[in-house]
Design a protein around this nucleic acid. Structure first.
Length: 271
DNA sequence: CGGACAACCTGGCGGC
DNA sequence: TGCCGCCAGGTTGTCC
């Protein structure tokens, strides 16, 4: 579930706690969580590196270390938080990797479904360069959005979720953006008018920036680093609203499967 | 290019 | 109460 607003909230929460800290050691509890590297190599290589900066690219959390980058992808059920060394935080049941810091605290990564990944690499571009533009940057203009969609014949919702087209949008915010734009998620991208593309562009930016303001959507598993919930889910118009009246026209919200994903939309005012 | 689908995983829930 | 099967969804990879 963590999409751009949730990942951004995690980064903002951790930034003041992690910046400048040194990772004394790491302990891997589930080897599969470490991508492209044997767990012992990961533990040995990260020890002693300082966290220079912490940021986000798409849905990746990016830690710039002394010699490497540490990329963390939460996938569906990953959680990242700080706890005192040896202290039970109540979140630790699915702990996969723990980083011991130089201030007696630990950065912990827990992940029920084990889909999440950590990448320790000197060439982060290998993972990040394939991502499309950041949708909230000033450089992401309506023209850029149109260019990214140009020549695409597929359905608009899977395209919105394609990280190579635009980075950071997942199932929840795709449904919400399409509701605001009044566009049927099954519409083929190449049938959208200029006006519809512009409306969708504004809707994407709105739902993502509103999501950040509300500190993410806590559906099922997502939590802020301090363990509390975000509030974006209280404002959903379409996602998870099956059979409830559309807030715009009162027609019951319908749920279908589209590209193997649960998809919620208003059959009347999303055309 | 696109669409379908499997794989990776575990827990919650509805149905029986 | 317990068992079964479905659903949740980010990403990669395979196949047609």
């Amino acid at each position: 579930m963590p999409e751009l607003p949730e990942v951004e909230t995690v980064v903002r929460g951790l930034h003041p706690l992690l910046r400048g800290r040194i990772i004394w050691s790491a302990q891997v509890y589930w080897a599969g969580t470490v991508a492209d590297l044997p767990a012992p190599d990961f533990e040995e290589r990260i020890a002693g590196q300082q966290i220079k900066e912490i940021g986000r690219r798409g849905k990746y959390i990016v830690l710039d270390l002394s010699n490497d980058s540490l990329l963390i992808h939460l996938k569906m059920t990953g959680r990242l938080y700080i706890a005192g060394a040896g202290q039970d935080s109540g979140e630790d049941r699915w702990m996969r990797v723990v980083f011991a810091l130089d201030n007696g605290k630990e950065l912990r990564f827990s992940d029920l479904r084990k889909f999440g990944r950590v990448y320790l690499t000197s060439t982060p571009g290998k993972y990040l360069d394939k991502l499309g533009p950041e949708p909230l940057y000033d450089s992401f203009t309506p023209e850029v959005f149109c260019e990214r969609l140009a020549g695409r014949a597929g359905q608009i919702k899977p395209l919105l979720m394609n990280q190579a087209i635009v980075a950071g949008i997942g199932n929840i915010y795709a449904d919400e953006a399409l509701w605001y734009a009044g566009i049927d998620p099954r519409r083929k991208a190449d049938t959208l008018t200029q006006e519809e593309q512009d409306t969708l562009y504004r809707s994407v930016r709105k739902v993502l920036s509103d999501g950040i303001e509300r500190e993410g959507a806590s559906v099922n598993w997502y939590r802020k680093p301090d363990g509390s919930t975000g509030s974006a889910q209280e404002y959903f118009k379409a996602y998870g609203q099956s059979d409830k009246p559309c807030p715009r026209c009162g027609t019951p919200i319908r749920k279908i499967r589209l590209a193997q994903r649960g998809t919620h939309f208003c059959p009347l005012c999303q055309q």
